[in-house]
């Protein structure tokens, strides 16, 4: 006969989520889901670039709006974190604003627009221009996690290809670009090889951002909600864009500078400013542009 005697302290009451939304768990997800995602994240970090399957939950926004990124952020974020959310580099677009509000409401966390102040940055399709640090985690929203999917639609086959390190088809695809157009024409979601092993989709970031992933001091986590995959790149890990000796990887360059802040080193958006097709170019990273303007930098103001 075995009797279980509770410890004298065992009746400590469970405190509610500190500043979250009444009726919801801290950061929206239930604890069992968080544990499942957390275990997937740890294995993803241990196997850089490998896509770990996870039980993606239905979230209060549609697939394609960042459900994977949100679930990763919800599993990672704590009450002391400062969250920044960007969509195509900007803090003030619909997707970024609503995700930021979601975590401000459900987790009660502080949010910021400033890259340097953030401890967790969730991003759709950009890496901030300011180099990230060891104290930051970058969470990517990923639509199609499988880099080989357009070349091989069957999951069972692509899984085998990753297992056997069989990436010839990807090189052939890049080579076909060169044969047809004289250069590799992929401008976003440009495939990378992580730590010399797995070929990985960097999510649809412009290839301009690919070099920033290489040996980044921050931890990079990727969440694909609809496709139910999580993957990761640990800090200081080699991330090489696929290329050929005679056709080395190159990033985009612009003749123009940012019209607002004059930056020559940032990724520029083309903005049509009237119905005659007049264009101006501005930084895609809205925080970078604002910081530069606040520091006194000025562009030419765009078309007059």
């Amino acid at each position: 006969m075995t009797t279980v005697i509770p410890h004298p302290n065992a009746s400590v009451a469970t405190s509610a989520a500190p500043a979250g939304l009444a009726g919801y768990n801290f950061a929206y997800l239930d604890e069992q889901t968080k544990r499942m995602i957390r275990r997937a994240l740890l294995k993803a970090v241990a196997i850089p670039g490998y896509q770990v399957p996870f039980g993606s939950r239905e979230m209060p926004l549609p697939y394609g709006w960042g459900t994977g990124g949100i679930q990763v952020t919800a599993a990672v974020i704590g009450p002391d974190d400062v969250l920044k959310v960007i969509d195509q580099g900007a803090d003030d677009t619909t997707n970024a604003v609503s995700i930021r509000r979601f975590f401000a409401k459900t987790a009660g966390v502080a949010t910021t627009d400033r890259t340097v102040d953030a401890t967790v940055i969730q991003t759709r399709h950009r890496i901030p221009e300011v180099p990230l640090t060891e104290n930051q985690i970058l969470v990517y929203q990923v639509p199609i996690p499988e880099p080989l999917r357009q070349l091989e639609p069957r999951e069972a086959e692509t899984r085998k290809m990753h297992a056997l390190e069989e990436y010839g088809v990807m090189h052939v695809s890049l080579y076909e670009d060169i044969a047809k157009f004289g250069r590799i024409t992929r401008s976003y979601n440009y495939p990378v090889r992580v730590n010399g092993r797995y070929v990985m989709a960097p999510s649809p970031i412009p290839k301009f951002d690919n070099p920033k992933m290489d040996r980044m001091p921050a931890l990079q986590l990727f969440g694909a909600g609809r496709e139910k995959r999580i993957y990761a790149v640990p800090p200081y890990t080699d991330v090489k864009s696929l290329d050929f000796e005679d056709h080395p990887f190159e990033i985009e360059t612009w003749e123009e500078d940012c019209s607002l802040c004059g930056a020559q080193d940032s990724y520029l958006d083309e903005v049509i400013v009237d119905d005659k097709g007049t264009k101006m170019y501005v930084c895609s990273d809205s925080d970078y542009c604002r910081e530069r303007r606040e520091a006194g930098h000025q562009g030419d103001g765009g078309p007059k």
């Binding site: 005697i5 509770p6 065992a10 400590v12 469970t14 405190s15 989520a17 500190p18 768990n25 604890e31």
Partner: peptide
């Protein structure tokens, strides 16, 4: 039987 986390979520 020892207690677990006082505040399991956080």
């Amino acid at each position: 039987l020892r207690p677990g986390f006082a505040d399991p979520v956080i």
